[in-house]
Amino acid sequence: MTPALTLFNFFLITVGGFFAGLLGSLTGLGGGTVLVPLLTIFYGVPIIYATGASLVSTIATSAGSASAYVKERISNVKIGIGLEVATTIGAVIGSLLAVFVYTHNLDWIIYVLFGAVLLFSLYPTAEKGRHEVPPVKAPDWTTRLFQMTGVYYDARLKKDVHYSGVKWWAGEIVMLFAGIISGLLGIGSGAMKVLGMDWAMNLPMKVTTTTSNFMVGITAATGSSIYWYAGYIQIFIAAGTAVGVLAGSFVGTKILVRMSNKNIRWLFFAVLSFLGAEMLLKGLSDNGIFQTSSPLRLGISALVSVILISGLFLLIRKQEAEDVKV
């Protein structure tokens, strides 16, 4: 390969990272979730290097956007660090599982799990934002012990929002799984962290998303060091994607605040579900459970994505209509 071609290749990897970061931030799923399928399906990058590059890029985007949220005092550093107890333990377990999977040539498991996690993350991610501030629940013993009260200024509601989290232990359980998924699949698993803080701990959406944002970096740092020694980080790819994903998510957040038509998000969700279906099918095909040719996979994935997203769109529309009535 000539140097010019290598340079072009680096450029292509950076552009891929840029799109992953852009799509990741517009949908709220994070850059890694888009990057891994992109690199494996379209760039022919082995999945170990794709997940390694993704994990490192995840730290970059997390730190980049968290610096703004932390400064604005929306993210709750205390709650975040408390929950990191479980995510870091999970990340160690997950990364070691990844080492086991790769040394036993069970790569297909990663594809299948990745596809499944991606598809299952769509619903909670698409649904979020319906309830900006959750209905108040009575504080429990963990609220006081773990000091889970806080306040932030909501620019859209134009008032201070006081909140108190509950069921710290339930949050920790969800975080343990989020950590395992992060270490195993090389993603930040921000969607799962949001789920834990939103559903289990009853924290306001703004607090969960921004706190999850800075937590993702700590979780990914744990996995990254294990990935480094295991040899899953190819520096040429990782450097390109880190730069690309960071730039992409930066642009994404700028677009997000100006995007007036929220329905455009559904187009992005369709792309994500396509990638999820493609990963799932590739894993099943590699294992021989359900063998498909590459064009057939593209066709099935496109079909799945159209059906899934129209269904999800109608479902959430219906729920929103009911919300208005109540």
Partner: peptide, 28 residues
């Protein structure tokens, strides 16, 4: 560059720890 990236979130935990020590927040 990659290790600076890995250490960035770690330094956040260290700084937070210092803050918890100064405010004598034992649990944290």
């Amino acid at each position: 560059g990659l290790w600076v990236l890995i250490f960035t979130p770690i330094s956040i935990v260290v700084i937070a720890l210092v803050e918890f020590i100064m405010s004598k927040n034992r649990l944290y």
